[in-house]
Design a protein around this nucleic acid. Structure first.
Lengths: 263, 263
DNA sequence: CTTGACCCTGACGCAGCGTCAGGGTTGCAC
DNA sequence: GTGCAACCCTGACGCTGCGTCAGGGTCAAG
């Protein structure tokens, strides 16, 4: 007669595993000796090895029981089933590998390649990390909601960086991220922005070229909110814009057909 | 401001997952509104998307935190580490697939191919399922302890099946599995077995050809025990053998140099 | 008699949430 | 005003396969 540790050693498993199989009903509880110790016969070794063999082959313990008692046909069917599961798990892991491989640099986290390029260009142009971080977070939101449109958006942004006027404005705006709401330089920047907006958007809404740049309202609201959260001067800046006949941030809109005079 | 379900929807995760990330400290607890509801700003969406991106790439949650705050270098190192883990898990699954594929039939469970062939031969020769089951369990024990020697053992067993005398004895022995200990046919079978033993093992132990067939004592004891457990008449049969100058079952041994006369 | 090696049961821990349970809140329709 | 659906909250168990204490008996050797 064998003790539990001898049994476990013969089958190549731990004592804890044997007790676990008892608890799960996979291996019948054997008789006890006078002091309550489990005592096993040789047949238990064979049973335990069968359990271990299936378990090591990736069979969930909950299915081991049926497999032990199954005939060839059911056994084959169950094996096919388990093989499917294993294949699926392998494919899942392979997908994971590809995904983390693409996360090589910190910037690419949750962003498509074109956005990473855009952020890299900003860095080249000397924008601060704080500003780039804000841009990154904003584009993460967009990429999550509208992945298909990211190439378009990024193309537009890259173009803006090529245009000297718009780049200059961008540099100004980037600075404001660290400014107080009361900073006296804000109105001038608002003027510059409005000037560019007036130039880009014809007064007649009929003539507005809708190239699909507009973002859905809820996403725009989210991005506006992000702006307001990250930039202390944002509320004041939006007020200045409103005074100049424009509202919004992500999607600029005229508040009136005839814009009011500056400041 | 967003509710938890809105946040979850933007990031493409469940509400439960968000709360889980809070509990794990991955996502900071936001402020609460007057009725205790969590209220999120847009920055939380970006944070959550980053967490989800890493988690979906197979990064364990316990490591997500460090990755979020890591620079490119540490990030790359961590990614390499995680990729190793994923590769290992894939290899493990592939090993499992091969193993269960080899478990196609019920007989091959925990047995090498040559043992399956041997059991198949027994079936062809008309041995009963109960007997074959006993043989199977015995060889499972041997295969677990001495996998390297299974080819040798199986070759010897196959040879025995080819020898008419030994096969006839085998058939007799197989029958005894269902007999009562008091069955009057037992002594005759013991005689036959002893006759074969005397022929195979020279009386002079010096001349015994030790071809490595002997099993280690503990394994032999285990197999003897299995025999005693499965076959009701086993104790009586061993007594009959002892009266004829032989002891043991798995490893037969003379009890005295000059065997006593039969029964 | 002591010491170390085993044996027992019971219970928590891990990973990543899913899923009640039990109870407040909100917002809209009637 | 009220009723109902849809949310929100905390707390806790469930799943997988054991590992690992905790707390306490047992056995064999010295």
């Amino acid at each position: 007669m064998l003790t539990i540790s001898q049994l476990a050693a013969y089958a190549g498993v731990t004592v804890r595993a044997v007790r676990h199989y008892h608890a799960k009903g996979l291996l019948p509880e054997p008789g006890r000796d006078h002091s309550g110790y489990r005592r096993y016969d040789a047949a238990a070794v064979a049973d335990l090895i069968k359990i271990r063999t299936l378990a090591e082959a990736g069979v969930p313990l909950s299915r081991v029981q049926e497999l032990l008692g199954a005939g060839s046909a059911e056994f084959a069917a169950a094996v096919k089933d388990i093989d499917r599961r294993l294949r699926a798990e392998i494919l899942e892991r392979q997908g994971h590998r590809e995904r983390i491989a693409r996360l090589a640099g910190g910037d690419s986290l949750a962003l498509p390649a074109e956005a990473v390029l855009y952020l890299g260009r900003l860095r080249e142009l000397g924008f601060t990390d704080r500003f780039i971080g804000g841009e990154r977070d904003a584009w993460i939101l967009v990429a999550a909601q509208l992945p298909d449109r990211m190439p378009l958006y990024m193309a537009v942004k890259q173009q803006q960086l090529e245009d000297p006027t718009s780049l200059a404005l961008y540099r100004d705006l980037a600075q404001t991220i660290d400014w107080e709401p009361s900073d006296p330089r804000l109105p001038a920047i608002a003027d510059k922005l409005v000037a560019l907006l007036e130039a880009s958007y014809p007064a007649d809404p009929e003539k507005t070229t809708d190239d699909g740049e507009e973002m859905p309202e809820d996403l725009a609201k989210l991005l506006d909110d992000l702006f307001l959260t990250l930039v202390p001067a944002a509320p004041r800046f939006l007020e200045l814009l409103k005074a100049r006949g424009w509202t919004g941030w992500t999607n600029f809109k005229r508040t009136s057909p005839t814009p009011a005079p500056g400041q």
